[in-house]
């Protein structure tokens, strides 16, 4: 479904990714892991097109999307939830969902479907998104991604800096979406969450893939060493 080959990118003259390749099959949950600063967020930003790729290709459903703009990729069925529970702060929760549903040219019913996944948002619809807690904003951010009816959901550290009770809700939501057949590309710092969720893992170090494998292999001593800070 998603196929990344020899991807290179970075910021200005500073290169961050040196030829990253990975695959996400339909319905698969692939977890990208690695220490801070190894290029996990850069990889996701390049996959969704916020950062231009300087070399390599990204294909989605067999189509080369390396040069497409982010909004074009969203319309093809990719959704991205960036780091740091971002939202449009002056718009209401409903406004945040509406703007996305309109931009992605989806019917309004998509909002109801997203609220089924995150029912905690329902009583907050009229509230200004800037006034929500971090955990609520993260749920809103994920709901916003869902209203675009994606086939591939890209999540950058969805549990980072979120209160524990909501971490569990978010993990359960990812589990349910995955079980319902959604493909997920996830960056996750917590090994225990990754172990519970992932089908496959990709470990990055220094802008390169150093290890990939099925989830069962994550227990290995070598893997823990690669992730140790």
């Amino acid at each position: 479904m998603l196929s990344v080959t020899g991807l290179e990118s970075g910021y200005g003259r500073a290169r961050v990714l040196f030829g990253v390749s990975l695959e996400v099959e339909p319905g698969q949950l692939v977890c990208v892991m690695g220490r801070n600063g190894v290029g996990k967020t850069t990889l996701l930003n390049t996959v969704i097109g916020v950062l231009p790729a300087t070399a390599g290709t990204v294909t989605f459903d067999g189509r080369d999307i390396t040069r497409l703009k982010p909004h074009e990729r969203v319309r093809l069925g990719m959704a991205y939830v960036p780091q740091g529970h971002q939202c449009f702060p002056t718009l209401s929760v409903l406004g945040n969902l509406l703007i996305t549903v309109e931009a992605a040219k989806q019917p309004r019913a998509a909002i109801d479907a997203a609220l089924e996944v995150f029912p905690a948002l329902r009583p907050l619809l009229k509230r200004s998104a800037g006034h929500l807690s971090g955990g609520q904003q993260q749920q809103l951010a994920m709901a916003r991604a869902l209203v675009t009816k994606p086939r591939l959901l890209i999540l950058d550290e969805p549990t980072e800096g979120i209160q524990p009770s909501i971490v569990l809700e978010i993990e359960a939501a990812i589990q349910r979406l995955h079980a319902a057949g959604l493909a997920v590309l996830l960056v996750e710092q917590y090994l225990d969450i990754a172990l519970r969720l992932a089908d496959r893992f990709v470990i990055l170090d220094g802008g390169q893939v150093v290890r990939t494998g099925a989830a069962e292999e994550l227990h290995g001593e070598e893997v823990r060493r690669l992730l140790a800070v």
Binding site: I48, R75, Q86, I99, A103, A104
Partner: peptide
């Protein structure tokens, strides 16, 4: 408010 978020929400910035 957030150009990057707008782009990844499907808005043609």
């Amino acid at each position: 408010q957030n150009r990057q978020l707008a782009a990844t929400s499907g808005i043609d910035t």
